[in-house]
Amino acid sequence: MSILFVLLKAPHEYHSLDAMAALGGDDKIGALLLEDATLYAVFKDKKDEIVDAADEIFVMGEDLQARGFRLRPEDGFQEIDYPRAVDLIMEDYDKTITL
């Protein structure tokens, strides 16, 4: 099974990502970062946390750009748009869970 976790809130609004790891277990875990959750890709103290918790991390490009940031290729995050988000939800992953 594969689970796509949808995150909308800023990194510091989550106590931890333990719930993501606990819910996902050995399944393939994807993280779809939208709105303030895109800041996981730039916050120095939070980046490692999400990299450790998810197998694939997708960042909504327009949300990150709006905040004045861009991805660094070496971090391994994938920048996406809404059509790609639809494919992730409808085809690439078995179910979505919002946290």
């Binding site: 909308l8 939208l34 709105e35 748009d81 809404y82 059509p83 988000a85 639809v86 494919d87 939800i89 409808m90």
Partner: peptide, 13 residues
Amino acid sequence: NVAVKLAKAALDK
């Protein structure tokens, strides 16, 4: 806005 953008992208597909 996110919900509406997602809906539109899914409809377009």
